[in-house]
Nucleic acid binder design. Structure first.
Lengths: 203, 203
DNA sequence: ATATAGTTTAACTATTTGGTTAACAAAATT
DNA sequence: AATTTTGTTAACCAAATAGTTAAACTATAT
């Protein structure tokens, strides 16, 4: 089947490109290396994706479309605030174990290319904070949590969950543990982080 | 003066190299661009630093030696735990405003080159967590704070302080504010973050 | 004044790298 | 069965890029 063969090749390329781009970034990635990993000729990369830039954009969009639903779990989920924080924290660790380089990749390339954000924003499913804001102010009015700006709380949640992965090599060195122990620490954070946040805001 | 002239050129190169490497990373930086920024011929870069790799290492070490004392403020300062958290948080924001690309640069290059950590570890002034551990367990024993592992608390402090800068483009988009408003949010974090942490752990 | 050591440049080289071309192979279409 | 379309490759090209060389220049010491 032609269709199947094509789809396989195209998927193979995207898979290989993801690995290389996410590990080395746009600037550090080499088309030849991607071709090798996909076990095809370099010209085929250009046949399917025209240029390094376009291949990169395909990888980037695909990465972001995996990350966005994760973020939406904090922002646009209907569950109760505390429950939401607990679920997100628990899920996020599992997510990053499946896609270890992904969050770092997205953040890194956004830093080097802040105008990308505009492109992402216009797309559907781009996470919005509005609902979360309402939920936080409701919880404050109902006396469930102490006054805090929703933006600050959101940044705290995201920071506590994402940074331990992005800063892994640095944190491992500072905390002075090996990979195995660090993984245990991360595993513990599945519950630890949520309780840390809830402790801070609950009345 | 010969000496002064040499030192100026060498310093000019390092200054230019810092800017370029910290913004674009090892892979994205171009020797020509560094030479242009330092207003010298490209051959002079090699005269003073032999290779891109060596120039990069000079920049990296210099960057880390600025970051290390900041981290030591949480780890090896003598002040009281709460006071320490407040001071660190306050200082860190000012530090990053002075060196916007620095923390991201260090973390990014460590991710792409985890073996760098070994080189850094052996150097003096490499931050150690031991003192902080004692301080936390003392505070727990004295009933000042709830039980928490020092490692987890440390990771939380660092995450809450560093990530808002590293994730700036992403967070700005998610929180849906412009640069000016985001800067205000960061400014507020100077006190906000410390209180968030202390609220969570104090009894 | 002159030798000497250090500094700087223009021009060059070798290699890497993204991208192209032309020929070939395999399917799909007629 | 013939032809068109799609997929794949080896060989090639031009631009970019790290690094080199040799000569010129500058300042200091002799």
């Amino acid at each position: 089947m032609d269709k199947i063969k094509t789809e396989n090749t195209e998927t193979e390329i995207l898979k290989a490109a993801k690995e290389i781009f996410q590990q080395k970034g746009m600037a550090g990635a080499r088309m030849q290396e991607i071709a090798d990993k996909a076990k095809i000729n370099k010209a085929l990369l250009h046949y399917y994706y025209r240029s390094k830039q376009l291949l990169f954009e395909a990888v980037f969009k695909s990465a972001f479309s995996l990350l966005a639903p994760q973020l939406n779990k904090v922002l646009n989920d209907d569950s109760d605030l505390f429950e939401k924080i607990r679920k997100f924290t628990e899920n996020y660790v599992s997510f990053v174990i499946k896609h270890p380089y992904l969050p770092n990749f997205v953040i890194q390339e956004l830093n080097k290319n802040p105008e990308f954000v505009q492109k992402l924003r216009s797309e559907k499913n781009f996470p919005s904070i509005e609902k979360f804001k309402l939920q936080v102010s409701d919880a404050i009015n109902q006396g469930i949590i102490k006054p805090i700006e929703a933006e600050q709380l959101f940044i705290n949640i995201i920071s506590l969950n994402i940074f331990p992965f992005i800063g892994e090599p640095l944190l491992m060195a500072l905390v002075n543990v090996d990979k195995e122990s660090y993984n245990k620490i991360l595993e513990n954070r599945k519950t630890e982080v949520a309780e840390f946040i809830i402790n801070s805001i609950k009345i």
